[in-house]
Design a protein around this nucleic acid. Structure first.
Lengths: 161, 161
DNA sequence: TCTTTCTTTATAATCATTATAATTAGTTTA
DNA sequence: TAAACTAATTATAATGATTATAAAGAAAGA
């Protein structure tokens, strides 16, 4: 019973470990060497709920890799981005943020404190079709973000804290 | 006949001059001084079809304002952005681009050559509602961009030029 | 016109990101 | 397993966009 075996194997690994294993396999298949640094960066990106900057990643791994260069973080983030494992989120004011790609989801961002929260929504194929029709482009992808005020900032505005 | 008079007045000014006049009035009303540099930067943003970077604006006005500082461009772009006259477009790789706000529109961007083309589409209120409902945010706005290959790059790919 | 305040200018500083060159370490193959 | 090939890491310097600073200049109101 192959299916049962698969289920058992899945159960034996935590979800994040599975994602990590898949990501490492994907890299290896495309000829990218697996170094301890790459392993650690990927693991960090998968385990965190936040959307860290390169510098945050660098500082978070400092204790495990005291000699790691910040260039290594940037280099590997680019490698992961090029292989589609992570997404780079760019906003005007600050540095890029990086997000491990799991299911398709969008982001809603607090104008006050910058908090980024994921939300799921069906893809906007209709918008892509219209854009393609009007402009003659061949559409590859789209980017959508919603901006607003998070509950915490909203309550702070009311209570004055 | 007020309406007729309005139509005549509108006809007497080119569309871009009208936008410029409105923008200057809006600034003046909110207590922002109109300097020759601000006038020129706004005029440039309104007249251009492209989505220029701060440096492009700076260089384009160099002949008219040989002594203008690049800081002036940045300062005023921030003033215009804060008063809602222009939008800042941020992408990962390069510097910010600036776009005079007219009607609501979105951008489609060529992955090959970076060309930015406007297209119009009804606002995505439904997405905003869902995001608000799921996350508890008070929604202010959203950002949407479509990516693809422009007709020119697509034909170049075929013809080999 | 005089004064106040804002804006511009010139320059230096900052900060994220990338390039470089030497060293180190995966991976392959014998 | 060990040599050999090649890619990755490190340390550092460089780049490039954007912002901060302080002095000089110009708009708006009394």
């Amino acid at each position: 019973m192959i299916i049962k075996k698969d289920i058992l194997d899945w159960g034996a690994l935590a979800m994040s470990e599975l994602k990590l294993k898949d990501a490492l396999d994907a890299l290896k298949t495309s000829g990218v060497r697996i170094t301890p640094q790459r392993h650690a960066i990927l693991k960090y990106l998968i385990s965190t709920e936040s959307h860290p900057t390169a510098d945050v990643i660098y500082k978070s791994l400092e204790s495990d890799f005291p000699n790691m260069s910040v260039a290594t973080v940037y280099n590997n983030l680019r490698v992961f981005r090029n292989s589609g494992l992570i997404k780079e989120l760019t906003y005007g004011d600050a540095s890029s943020r990086f997000d491990f790609v799991t299911h398709d989801h969008y982001h809603i961002i607090c104008d006050e404190c910058g908090t980024i929260v994921d939300f799921h929504h069906p893809g906007l194929e209709e918008v892509e079709h219209l854009a393609s029709h009007v402009t003659g482009f061949k559409v590859n992808s789209h980017r959508l973000e919603v901006y607003g005020t998070c509950p915490s900032c909203a309550s702070r505005a009311v209570t004055g804290n």
